[in-house]
């Protein structure tokens, strides 16, 4: 999704304003000239200046593009669906790994993603399961990363 530079610049200026206001509320310790608010506010000012530059750039080139243009792929639902799948897989993982355990969640993520990419169901499931078991062995068993076991707790 491409925005005109002016749109992006305006968003950055608004964001900079938010940071500046939020950082102005940070307390300063006694006798410290440069407290927690100093650096964020300095950055916010710099960002706002850059934002103005982008707005100027964007207005100059406005005739060429228009405010927003979608890349060709995003004009089809398939593209949006793809984004939703990836984001869903990551969000799903962070919500479910505690309850379902690593093996199940990882298989779901990998197999689900493969199914979306039109891998046939059986290979997708097999590969997902294999990837989950293999990564578990490497990371949890060998490298001692505490991947959650969920319902398998106490069984393996």
């Amino acid at each position: 999704m491409r925005f005109n530079d002016a749109v992006f610049g305006a968003v950055l200026i608004a964001f900079a304003a938010y940071v500046f206001i939020a950082a102005s509320g940070f307390p300063t310790a006694a006798g410290v000239a440069y407290g927690p608010g100093f650096f964020p506010r300095l950055l916010a000012c710099l960002l706002a200046v850059c934002g103005l530059g982008l707005v100027a750039n964007g207005l100059r080139g406005l005739s060429a593009g228009g405010w927003v243009s979608l890349s060709p792929a995003l004009r089809e639902p398939q593209g949006w669906f793809g984004i939703a799948i990836v984001l869903g897989a990551l969000l799903g993982y962070s919500w479910l790994d505690d309850v379902l355990g690593y093996h199940l969640t990882a298989t779901l993520v990998v197999s689900g993603f493969m199914l979306f990419l039109r891998v046939r169901p059986l290979p997708a499931l097999a590969l997902g399961l294999a990837a989950a078991i293999l990564t578990y062995l490497v990371f949890a068993r060998f490298l001692l990363v505490p991947l959650p076991l969920g319902p398998l707790t106490g069984l393996i």
Binding site: L90, V109, V110, R118, A131, V145, L147
Partner: peptide, 24 residues
């Protein structure tokens, strides 16, 4: 790629988790 990408995603998930041992 349709097999590679999901597996890369899984490795990314595990790596990101292992940084501080949290889904954060």
């Amino acid at each position: 790629r349709e097999i590679l990408m999901p597996i890369i995603l899984l490795f990314c998930i595990v790596g990101a988790f292992a940084t501080n041992n949290t889904v954060f």
